[in-house]
C-alpha cells in the first residue's frame, strides 16, 4: 500500500490554489513518486495554522502576500512549531528581500507566479529526496 502524505496550499485566491493543486496532481502522477497525496487548502494564515495543528502536514506551499499576515511569518511559525514540515514559498515577487528572508528560515523551493511547471516539479523532487527512507 502506498503511504499517504499531506500537503498544504496556503493562498488567498481561489483560482491560484486550484491552479497549484492541478499542477501538483499532474506532477505527482509520475510513477516514481511512491506516495499518495492529500492536499489541504487554506486561504488565510490563521486557517493554515489550524490545519497544521490538526493534520501532520509534510509539505506546505506558502503564498507570501496574504490578507491577514505575511507568508514569511507563517514560514517562521512552521519552523518553530512544526519542525518536520517542509515549506515551499510561492510569491508574485522574487525580490532579493523575499528570497533571502525565506532562505534564512530554510525552504525546499521558491515558486514564482505566474506558475511554471518546472519549479513545481523541482519542489516535489526536492521534497521526495529529503524524505526518501
Amino acid at each position: 500500500m502506498k503511504k499517504t502524505v499531506n500537503f498544504l496550499i496556503l493562498d488567498d485566491v481561489d483560482a491560484t490554489r486550484e491552479l497549484l493543486r492541478g499542477l501538483l496532481t499532474s506532477v505527482l502522477a509520475s510513477p516514481k513518486y511512491k506516495f499518495e497525496v492529500m492536499i489541504y487548502q487554506a486561504a488565510t494564515a490563521e486557517q493554515a495554522m489550524h490545519l497544521l495543528k490538526k493534520h501532520k502536514i509534510s509539505l506546505a506551499f506558502l503564498d507570501i502576500e496574504l490578507p491577514d499576515d505575511s507568508g514569511l511569518n507563517v514560514l517562521r511559525n512552521i519552523k518553530n512549531d512544526f519542525p518536520d514540515t517542509h515549506s515551499v514559498m510561492v510569491s508574485g515577487s522574487s525580490s532579493k528581500k523575499n528570497v533571502l528572508a525565506a532562505l534564512e528560515v530554510g525552504i525546499l523551493g521558491f515558486i514564482l507566479k505566474p506558475f511554471n511547471r518546472v519549479r513545481v516539479e523541482e519542489a516535489v523532487e526536492n521534497f521526495y529526496k529529503k524524505t526518501k527512507p
Binding site: V88, M89, G109, E122
Partner: peptide, 9 residues
Amino acid sequence: ILRSVGYNK
C-alpha cells in the same frame, strides 16, 4: 541563491 531555493537546472 538559486541552489539554496532548490533550483536544479
